[in-house]
Design a protein around this nucleic acid. Structure first.
Lengths: 190, 190
DNA sequence: TCATTAATTGAACACTGGTCAATTAAATAA
DNA sequence: TTATTTAATTGACCAGTGTTCAATTAATGA
């Protein structure tokens, strides 16, 4: 009945992203749908497709922010004062787990999802994210580490996050376990 | 036009499971649908619901077989002659990875899927499977291990399988990497 | 004022899992 | 053998999904 809204209430990419983000973070990826998002935005579902090619592109743009956040987490740890490099290395792994478990829906899309369309968009992002991680780890280790060692460290914490994402456990609930898991992994490079 | 087929071509639970299994193992969980399965079986999709309450129950019955297989893998390793317990422990972790990556669609449903309905059916199975694993590991370790240590070992290999499931990498392609990852994890309990 | 452009709508398409009344073959009882 | 009951199957139907697109209309520029 009324195609095209008045100028003030026109959709913008960022408005869509913000509401989508809110919806997806609070109720998870599986329950998210373009129609629910449209309802939340007060527009028709078709309108969203004027601003985003498809669902995958929308999620790519949402999650791009989270890759930046993850980089910041890493950078922040590198910037903090610690008693030793060993402690800093510990913190990197620990804070990675914290990030994963306090941002479970995002972590899922960033590193877990099998959806081919979404993986198509996320080609470099997870890789770049890993490279940052690997560089940080390499720079802090007491002994020189092989690339395989660093990869094993990553896979080790990735496994932790993955498992507790699946069971939707909060970070607080496994904080102590995370601590000992990180300590476990670090024993391997002692 | 012809409800109820002649006796010879009546559906059976096992026939459905077998075809479903084939379909799901070859083309993966996301592409699986009850309607495609019905087409493959040469029946209507409604008929399947006479034999299984829903999709989750069907998958539960499929994957129950795989939990048995995984138990067998473990039992087989425990039964083989090795030079040392250390080698046997190595084999347990390595063969777990092999199982996961040569049965990726199944591993996904067994340990990765977030679908609440499926998780409802798989309450004890993954847990029991882990207990077997944990007992085996505990019995083989040189030093006594804490439950946390065993859990970290599991989470460590789980992370490996998870990652290469997502990228749909074959076991053969990461066999060497799996070897070094297991060696890495075992260093932590040396 | 009027043509052009940009943004929105909602019907439509091809899917999904799931339900259920109607139908009919097979099994059982008379 | 015939009638009746039971078991298995069908396919229309429901509510939902992502996606497309002709039609519509507000805003913009000439």
């Amino acid at each position: 009945m009324s195609p095209r809204k008045s100028a003030q209430e026109e959709l913008t990419k960022t408005a869509i992203i913000n509401v989508a983000r809110e919806l997806f973070v609070t109720s998870g990826y599986p329950s998210f749908s373009m129609r629910k998002l449209a309802k939340e935005l007060g527009c028709s579902h078709g309108a969203i497709y004027y601003h985003f090619k498809n669902k995958a592109e929308l999620f790519y743009e949402i999650v791009t922010q989270d890759f930046l956040t993850l980089d910041c987490v890493l950078e922040e740890v590198l910037g903090t004062q610690t008693n030793s490099n060993e402690e800093k290395l510990y913190l990197i792994l620990f804070e990675y787990i914290r990030f994963g478990l306090t941002n479970q829906p995002q972590y899922e899309v960033m590193f877990l999802i099998k959806d081919e369309e979404i993986k198509g968009y996320l080609l470099e992002a997870p890789n770049n994210s890993y490279l940052h991680f690997a560089n940080a780890v390499a720079s802090l280790a007491a002994k020189p580490l092989t690339p395989k060692d660093i990869w094993s460290l990553f896979i080790g914490i990735h496994g932790f996050v993955t498992h507790y994402c699946r069971t939707e456990t909060s970070f607080e609930d496994v904080k102590q376990l995370a601590k000992s898991h990180v300590e476990f992994l670090l024993k391997a490079i002692k």
